[in-house]
Simulated scan of single mutants.
Amino acid sequence: MKHVRSSVGITAAMVAMLLTFGATQAVAATSVSDVPVAKSASAFTKDFAKSNQPAISRAGHACGGNYQLASADPLPFGVDPKLRKGVLYNYITPDSGSACAIFDNNTGVRQYMELTSCPGTNVGGPGCSSDKGNFLEYAGPTYTSTKGPRGTCWVHQAYMQRVISEGITYGKTC
């Protein structure tokens, strides 16, 4: 008799392990899924994370371990979140000073997308990382330092052909 390992069992074990790790880090973050949400996240981001757990988890896992969701920005700005075309996810590692971005495609069709992440506010300067192409799911991950040349700030620039062109600066001082 052949033994088949269930991917559901593996996923449940991984979620339990990550939730246990998140529980030990309760001072730094709260968990709404298997990816922790940073304490510094806005009320909007915390609510968005609760109602969009699969997307938060998928994007967080694309960034890698130890990242916490710092913000989720439905794009284009000013559009009802239910009508969004994409979401720019900003993940941080509080201890190492690193940021990761994922630009989620919510259109349901392949789109030309660009995502660039840079320390400070100089898009295209030294220390930037980019991901460009035709994506069905998301652009990224892109990584940068959260320590810019003039303070603790960084920028993620998101572009979706004929739909979105937004730049967002994150951090406390710039």
Rank of each mutant, 00 (worst) to 15 (best):
I164Y: 00
A49W: 00
Y170D: 00
G78P: 06
T146M: 12
A62D: 02
K46W: 02
S40D: 06
I102C: 06
Q25G: 08
A70R: 06
P36F: 03
G148F: 02
K2Q: 08
S6H: 05
L69G: 01
H3D: 04
P76T: 07
C153T: 07
K172C: 03
A62F: 00
G171V: 06
V155Q: 11
R58I: 09
L75W: 03
A38P: 02
V35K: 02
P81D: 03
P76I: 04
F135W: 09
A43M: 08
G124N: 12
T146Q: 09
N106Y: 09
T173D: 14
M113T: 05
V163D: 12
S165L: 07
S33Y: 03
F135D: 05
G125W: 05
V32R: 07
T169G: 01
P36R: 13
Q111H: 05
A41K: 03
L75A: 04
R150E: 13
D104K: 14
V163Y: 09
G171K: 03
I10V: 13
D47Q: 15
Y138Q: 14
G120F: 02
G65W: 09
L75K: 07
N90R: 14
G151E: 06
V87L: 04
A72N: 04
F103C: 05
D95C: 02
L88G: 03
Y159H: 13
A13E: 08
T144D: 03
Y91E: 01
R58P: 00
Q157S: 15
Q157F: 12
F103K: 05
A29T: 05
V35P: 00
K147V: 10
C174V: 08
H156L: 10
F77S: 13
T142H: 05
S51H: 10
K50P: 04
T24R: 11
L18Q: 13
S96F: 09
A43L: 11
D95G: 10
P74A: 08
A38R: 03
T142A: 12
V155M: 10
G65C: 00
G64A: 10
T152W: 08
F103P: 01
E114T: 14
R150F: 12
D80L: 10
Y143R: 14
T169E: 04
S57Y: 01
Y112H: 15
T144E: 00
L75P: 00
Q161S: 15
S33C: 13
T173F: 10
R58E: 10
M1W: 07
V163G: 00
S31K: 10
K172Q: 11
V87C: 03
L19G: 12
K2N: 08
V32D: 02
G133Q: 08
G108E: 04
